[in-house]
């Protein structure tokens, strides 16, 4: 017997929370970015689970969209992090503090 919808949702929620909390606690830009990826992928899990539950393909379609968007975001994001690293020789977000708060 396959697991119930609830278990998938719980797992997805836990992964999402780990990602969300990780972004706040991490000080390393790459680490923060990985946490964001974790958030996006946990959402994918929810989409697929709901898609299966309703027998509706929209959720799976959404997952493909999310995956391609995440890839584009990774390309741009790493580019931004690299430019930052070139000028600062660090990827620590605490170093990003010229703009006063």
């Amino acid at each position: 017997m396959e697991p119930a919808l609830g278990s998938y949702l719980a797992l997805s929620g836990i992964l999402f929370s780990i990602g969300a909390v990780g972004v706040i606690y991490k000080r390393n830009a790459i680490g923060m970015f990985m946490c964001i990826e974790l958030m996006l992928n946990s959402v994918n899990l929810s989409f697929v689970a709901f898609s299966r539950h309703y027998g509706d393909v929209t959720g799976q379609l959404f997952v493909f969209v999310v995956m391609s968007v995440a890839a584009a975001e990774a390309a741009v994001g790493l580019g931004i992090i690299i430019t930052f690293f070139r000028n600062r020789l660090s990827v620590d977000v605490d170093d990003a503090s010229i703009l006063k708060n």
């Binding site: 969300a20 972004v23 964001i36 958030m39 996006l40 946990s42 959402v43 930052f84 977000v93 010229i98």
Partner: peptide, 22 residues
């Protein structure tokens, strides 16, 4: 300043996108 602006916008923007998507 421009680097920092892009980095902050990127991290916080994708963070918010994550919530939106969820």
């Amino acid at each position: 300043r421009s680097n920092e602006s892009a980095l902050k916008y990127f991290i916080l923007g994708s963070y918010a996108s994550g919530f939106l998507l969820y």
